[in-house]
Simulated scan of single mutants.
Amino acid sequence: MIKAGILGATGAVGQRFVQLLADHPWFEITALAASERSAGKKYGEVAKWRLDTDLPENVRDITVVSTKPKEVDADIVFSALPAEDAITIEKDFAKAGFVVSSNASSHRMEKDIPLLIPEVNPEHLALIDVQKKKRKWDGCIVTNPNCSTIMMVLTLKPLMKFGIENIHVATMQAVSGAGYEGVSSMAIMDNVIPYIGGEEHKMETETQKLLGTFDGKIVKDAPFWVSAACHRVPVMDGHTMSVWMRSKKNPTPEQVKNAFLKFDPKLGDLPTSPKKAIIVREEPDRPQPRMDRNQGRGMSVSVGRIRAGADNAVQYVCMGHNTVRGAAGASILNAEVLKKKGYL
């Protein structure tokens, strides 16, 4: 078993890491790290458990430590830290020889740090060698994208063969993406909030890096642009988005559907990988968060309403579980690929 620590273990994404790693066949939780006010106390005492499963018994009595490398007994750390904390703490861990699989946004766009979706760009893991040589680290940092970006880009990967020219996307994002206390009930009930700070920029820039090409030294951005509009809606879990894709080859909706159906990233030997990365829904009113977010144990992305749009665009709807596929599950899948490729 590989010893695993969780940074930011008491927060919403940290709890999801605990839930998903508690019975993992490759990783054993050996350290839970959080703020100084939680350090020294039992995890069961300080974690206000918010998930719909019981707190795993095997972590309840683990003593929480601070987010300092010398206090964490692990080979890999999964980071659920706030971005403002992750920017220094994650580098401290990498310098100290830890592999850091991060959900934080702090280092995603740094040129020598992989921004990874295993089904999309596993070749970008070679940036780890560039990173270690440049920074003289014994460890490394690997990041997963923004939660909405993951859902969209996973569906764009099989469409790259059509020569994507531009993407428009409008998101409808669940409140859990903002954390348990991120959006007040008075603000979101009977309402839609047409602004999520920084979200649109992340979708527009991260997509280009993810679908870009690695030349042995750097990743060159994909040669198309993305325009995003992001909205918070009164849904608990599951981000939904409408995508307009325009490409050089002008595929029909049927060709796009077939590309989704045939997509096989060949990651079936990884414990967190779903049987189907993309699930196509034929019903006219699907996918829906409440009905589809847990497909593939929360790791599948569902698509539907594939249809012709204006100016030779193809439109479709995609959705996925934002704290599983879009956060903790994504980091865990990244770590499994690291192990498979010999980086862990």
Rank of each mutant, 00 (worst) to 15 (best):
I218F: 13
V226C: 00
M236P: 00
M189H: 12
V235H: 01
I196W: 06
A174Y: 05
H231W: 09
E200T: 04
N166K: 15
V243A: 02
F224I: 07
K202Y: 15
A228T: 01
V192C: 09
P194G: 02
I218Y: 14
V175R: 08
M189C: 11
S176L: 01
H124S: 11
V192M: 11
V235K: 01
M151D: 10
H124V: 06
K220H: 15
K202W: 14
T149R: 01
P118F: 02
T155S: 13
D221P: 10
L115E: 12
D129R: 15
Q208M: 13
I164S: 02
N144E: 08
V219C: 06
Q131H: 15
V120A: 04
A174R: 04
M236C: 01
S185K: 13
D190W: 12
M241H: 11
N146L: 15
R232D: 02
P234L: 04
Q208V: 11
P158A: 04
V243N: 06
G212F: 08
P118L: 01
P145G: 05
V233R: 03
A187R: 14
V226N: 02
V120S: 05
M241S: 14
C230F: 03
K134V: 11
L156P: 13
V120Y: 05
D190N: 15
V192P: 04
S176H: 06
E119I: 00
M189F: 12
P223V: 11
L154P: 03
E123G: 04
P194H: 09
E119Y: 00
M241V: 12
I117N: 02
A170M: 15
T155G: 03
G139R: 07
T207C: 13
Y180V: 01
S227D: 14
S185V: 13
V175K: 08
K157Y: 00
I218M: 11
H231Y: 13
A228G: 02
K161H: 10
A126G: 07
R246H: 14
Q208C: 11
I196R: 01
K161D: 15
P223Q: 02
I218C: 07
D221M: 07
L159N: 09
G212D: 11
V130G: 03
E204A: 12
C147W: 12
K248V: 02
A229K: 14
G179C: 04
I193E: 00
T155F: 06
T207W: 04
T155M: 01
I164Y: 09
H239V: 10
K209V: 14
